[in-house]
Amino acid sequence: MPRKKPEPIQVIKQRRDAALHALAGGVPYIQYLGIQFDRRGDELTAVLPFADQLIGNPMLPAIHGGVTAAFLEVTALISLSWSYLWDDIETGVLEVETLEEGRLPRLPKTIDFTVDYLRSGLPRDAYARARITRSGRRYASVQAEAWQDNRDRPMAQATAHFLMPRPKS
């Protein structure tokens, strides 16, 4: 039997980008902080462009610790949701039209979130990536790290636990 012809790359990219846009673009708080997501295949990098309203210590100046925490939490939650939905995005179980209308399946909920501040956040752009250390049926553990100029000099790291959505029975 002949192998199924692969989908055109534009179709795949459109579907993935629509899903990511629906996931992050529809959340007011993510927009308010100005967080964007860079996608390479299934790998996501969150970007937080610097803005004056993000300052927590005007004397230094430094990014507000709460902003750094929120940035890591958003990165962890979106990355987890992204990996949770990936198969449904790839197989087309989740339709592009549905996603583009902003209709999303239920997403994980944060149970707890721990952030370690390693260096003060400078007044410039920040980046973050998350790693899902375990994704079970009910709970998931995620680690996230944020950095600015140097990837090897993180400004903060976080560990978070999430409650996974119950599948429709």
Binding site: G26, V27, P28, Y29, G65, V67, A69, A70, E73
Partner: peptide
């Protein structure tokens, strides 16, 4: 602007973190 779940209007956990900090 602080909403984390557009369907319910619940504030995002990150905003609560900023307040706690």
């Amino acid at each position: 602007r602080l909403i984390g779940d557009p369907e319910t209007g619940v504030v995002h956990g990150g905003a609560v973190s900023a307040l706690m900090d």
